[in-house]
Design a protein around this nucleic acid. Structure first.
Lengths: 198, 198
DNA sequence: CTTCCTATACCGACTGGACGGTAAAGTCAC
DNA sequence: GTGACTTTACCGTCCAGTCGGTATAGGAAG
């Protein structure tokens, strides 16, 4: 929408997005007010609203940045991980499992913050999920194992996001290895019914 | 605090909780205002606040009801499902997979609604999760498979909760069978490392 | 049985603060 | 001075929670 973002503006925008993410991380999405963001970003409320004309726009900006970030990480992993079976599944599970690192922790929370108010804001998220799902299945040597692994990691991330995970640090490591092995050994999962249906 | 809840009061309370759940389901947690709940319940705002002295108390009541409901379902399934390996895991995954049914759909949303405002409200939820996790592992013939299945189902539920699940109805059914088979056949998951530690 | 008293349950106008958003007046770079 | 960017001051709305009041039921006293 904004025609030519200048350097100054870009700087302000990142400062604002950083501030918003920080607030969500520290005091929760419900306290993400425009005043608080402006103050934290060291900018006035008017200035904030100049950069993001509404709160929804701000949330949208946060989500977009997160989505972009994930795409970059995935691209990076796609070339870093040693190729082999279920590459896409390994990429996505790795991204999700790493998503607990401090710098990216706000991802989950940012998404959550948006959903509550305006479900449409999640559409970019739905989009990358749909895409990831398609790629995951297309690329998978053992689709059932790939789906299982992805959803399991997604489940753990969801629990951690809400601070509800019962897994100890050791348990988590074990689980991560389980996922890794499940995906690297196409024969790890042996099911009676269809073994490898299209 | 209230000494002896009378029948009348209990009736009002359930009407209120029903109304609140309905509102969340229909228009989202952000529109869950005391006025709206009161109106929907066919009661005055004063009456509502008489039964639940604060909004937090109302949210707490909603969560408690949901938690109790889940406990009942689990008890029921524990006697219904045919005994065999990984019973606890089968119980919990069944509950979670059924949680999409209309009557229980508000569970997820109710929980979410609460979290945003006040993280402490989730402590009863954390409690049943911790318990479920312990039982799951203790009872499991193949702990890794049990954990995998539980987290995967949890992941799917999380996605569906936010309307983000990419799985078609058929995919979902397939996935449910995968889970079932994974838990009923302790040999379905064969991992190189520790096959059945501890 | 009737009068008085109390407790429970509920009512609805009101308040005070929070918060998203607006508008007009700067400020600074070019 | 023109346009990008920022500030200050303000408005309107929404909403949790308050508060004085009403209605009904039950029990005790006369």
């Amino acid at each position: 929408m904004s025609a030519i973002p200048t350097a100054k503006r870009i700087n302000s925008r990142t400062k604002i997005l950083d501030a918003a993410a920080q607030i969500i991380r520290e005091v929760g999405a419900s306290r993400l007010t425009l005043d608080a963001v402006a103050q934290r970003a060291g900018i006035s409320k008017g200035g904030l609203l100049y950069n993001f004309p509404s709160k929804d726009a701000l949330l949208q900006g946060m989500i977009q940045r997160i989505v972009d970030e994930v795409a970059i990480r995935k691209d990076h992993l796609r070339t870093t991980l040693k190729s082999g079976p279920n590459l896409e599944a390994r990429v996505i599970t790795t991204v999700l499992l790493e998503m607990r690192e401090p710098e990216a922790e706000d991802l989950a929370l940012g998404i959550l913050s948006a959903f509550g108010e305006n479900r449409e804001l999640l559409s970019p998220v739905r989009h990358i999920i749909d895409e990831a799902y398609t790629q995951l299945l297309a690329d998978a040597e053992n689709p059932k194992a790939a789906l299982l692994a992805w959803l399991a990691v997604e489940g753990l991330r969801g629990l951690e996001m809400h601070g509800l995970s019962p897994l100890s640090e050791a348990d988590r490591k074990d689980f991560a290895s389980t996922i890794k092995e499940l995906l690297e050994q196409p024969t790890a999962l042996v099911l009676p019914g269809t073994s490898s249906r299209n």
